[in-house]
Design a protein around this nucleic acid. Structure first.
Lengths: 197, 197
DNA sequence: CTTAACTTACTTAGTGCTCGGTAAGTGAGT
DNA sequence: ACTCACTTACCGAGCACTAAGTAAGTTAAG
C-alpha cells in the first residue's frame, strides 16, 4: 500500500469519526480536539488533512452525499410502480444508521442562515432533491399512473417535507415514533393521493 | 412602576433578544457575551436573571410555547370544518416571524441528543402536539366528516411532519419555496386525504 | 416621618478552561 | 534530495461562570 493510499484511508476514517460527532453534538458543538482525540491524531494533524474546521465539515457532507446518491440511482432503476414501495425499505435501512440521519437533520438546521458554512450546499441539495422527486412524479404522470391536477414540484416538496419531518420526530423520541410504521403508513397515504383512488 | 415590574420587563426584553440570536446562530453558537452586548447588560447581569446559559434557553423556550399555545386555543375554538382552512393562515402569519420559526427548527435539531438541555422539553412538546392534532382528527371522525380507516395518531404525526418539513425547506431557501402556497396546496391534499373524496 | 436593615439589580474584575489555528520541526517513504 | 503525514509547543481569543462589591429601591421599627 502506497503512502498516498494510506493517507486517503486515514482521511476516510477521520471523516467517519467526525460525521458521528457532528451528528451527536452538531458542527458547532464539536471541537477539533474531540475529533482528533477519537481519531487518535493531534489537532494539527487533523488540520493538515482538511485545512480548517469548515474543510472537515465539507468533507463530511460530501461523503454523505455519495451515500444518498446511491439511493437515488437505486430509485431510478426501479419500475415507477415499485418506487413507492421503496420508501419504507429506505426507512428501515436508515433506522440502523440513525447517526447519519441525525447528522443530516442537525447540519441542515445549523445551515439555515445564509452565511453558515454549509448553507449553499444544502440549498443546492434540496433543489436537486425536489427536482429528482418531481421528475419521478412526472414520469408516473406520463405513464398514466396518476390522477389529474397533480403539481409535480409542489408534491415533491411535500413528500420530502413529510419524510424529513417524520425522521425528526423519530430521532427526537424513538420510543414514541415508529419510523418504519410511520413511513409505511405515509406510503399508503401517498399512493391514494397520487393515484386519486 | 415597581422595581419588580421593571425587572420583569427587562427579563422579557432579554428573552426576545436571546431568541433572535439563538435562531440565527443556535444555542451553542450564541455566547452569553453576544446576548449581553445586544441587551446592553453585562454577562453577570444576564446570569443574575437566568442563573446559567441553560436557564436562558429554557426561558426562551417557555416564552415561545406561550405563543404557540395561543394558536392551539384558536384552533380549538373553530368549527371542525374550518380548521383546515386555518393552516395557510398560520403559515401566512409565521412568514413574517421567520425568526421564531427558525428558532424552533434550530433548537429541536440541537435537542435531538437525549442529554441536550432542551431535549425533554421538546419530547414532551411533540407528544402533546401529536395528541392535540389526533384529538382534532378524532372529533372530525365523530362528526362523520372523515373517510374510514383513518388512524388519528399516525395521521397527526404525518401532518406535523409535513408542516415542519415544509417550513425547514422554506427557511433554508425562501426564494425557491413559497411557504404559503406550499401549505395551501398541502391543506388541499389533506382535505382529500381526510374526507376520502 | 425618619431612618436603619434588608433586598435586588446589577457592575468590575478575574477565574480556569477550551477554542481554532500556527510555527517549526521530525522521521519515515519515495 | 525531496515529499508529506504528521508531532510538540504555543498563541491569543473567547468561553461560561464566580466573587465581591455598589447603589438604588423597599420595608419596617421607633
Amino acid at each position: 500500500m502506497s503512502r498516498r493510499e494510506r493517507a486517503r484511508l486515514r482521511r476516510e476514517e477521520i471523516i467517519l469519526i467526525a460525521a458521528e460527532l457532528f451528528a451527536e453534538r452538531g458542527y458547532r458543538g464539536t471541537s477539533l480536539a474531540d475529533v482528533a482525540a477519537r481519531a487518535g491524531i493531534t489537532e494539527p494533524g487533523l488540520l493538515h488533512h482538511f485545512g480548517n474546521k469548515a474543510g472537515l465539515l465539507l468533507a463530511v457532507i460530501e461523503r454523505r452525499d455519495l451515500d444518498s446518491e446511491a439511493f437515488a440511482m437505486e430509485l431510478f432503476g426501479m419500475e415507477p410502480a415499485d418506487r413507492l414501495r421503496a420508501l419504507p425499505e429506505f426507512a428501515r435501512r436508515n433506522k440502523h444508521r440513525a447517526g447519519l440521519a441525525k447528522l443530516f437533520t442537525v447540519l441542515v438546521a445549523e445551515s439555515l442562515e445564509p452565511d453558515a458554512p454549509g448553507h449553499d450546499h444544502f440549498v443546492a441539495r434540496y433543489r436537486a432533491l425536489r427536482a429528482i422527486v418531481a421528475d419521478i412524479i412526472r414520469s408516473a404522470q406520463e405513464a398514466g399512473l396518476t390522477r389529474d391536477g397533480l403539481d409535480p414540484e409542489a408534491k415533491a416538496a411535500e413528500i420530502i417535507a413529510t419524510l424529513d419531518g417524520l425522521q425528526t420526530q423519530w430521532l427526537l423520541d424513538p420510543e414514541a415514533v415508529d419510523i418504519v410504521a410511520a413511513v409505511e403508513s405515509y406510503a399508503r397515504t401517498l399512493e391514494r393521493d397520487l393515484t386519486g383512488s
